[in-house]
């Protein structure tokens, strides 16, 4: 894992994978993609970064403990369901709204929030496991 080429190229690849994963997440409702596969790809990106730059660097890049992402993800998904309380509809009923952002109409919805929760959960869980394993593997 110490090839110069790999270490140099890894951040670029990782960045591309992360962008791709977000793209998959956002288009998931209409085209192939979604939170699960997006989260997995993002996790793979972080695993790659961990191999290339070391676990410590990756943890620093994450800013938070990876598992926190997963916890926030489950909370977000649950929150997406709880929101329906305010509209007097059953738990997890989809709610839709259109927001104007810089003049462009963007539709936001609770399923989107839910999918983001899925993304973060999958990402956080797997990254935390992979990083822990990679950390254990150093020098062994």
């Amino acid at each position: 894992m110490n090839s110069l080429l790999f270490r140099t190229m890894a951040p670029v690849i990782v960045a591309a994978m992360l962008v791709f994963s977000l793209y998959l997440l956002l288009r998931g409702h209409n085209e192939p993609g979604g939170g699960f596969v997006g989260g997995l790809i993002a996790a793979a990106a972080m695993a790659l970064l961990g191999m290339a730059n070391g676990v410590m660097a990756t943890r620093r890049a994450l800013h938070f403990d990876a598992l926190n992402y997963a916890g926030v993800g489950v909370l977000l998904a649950a929150l997406a369901g709880v929101l329906s309380v305010f509209y007097d509809v059953p738990f997890l009923t989809g709610l839709w709204a259109e927001v104007q952002l810089f003049g462009t109409p963007i539709s936001v919805s609770t399923p989107m929030l839910f999918d983001l929760g899925v993304y973060l959960t999958v990402f956080g869980s797997i990254v935390s496991v992979v990083l822990a394993l990679e950390a254990g593997g150093e020098g062994a």
Partner: peptide, 12 residues
Amino acid sequence: LTAIVIGFAMFT
């Protein structure tokens, strides 16, 4: 789809 991800988590 969900089974794959859960299966993977359990496998880990």
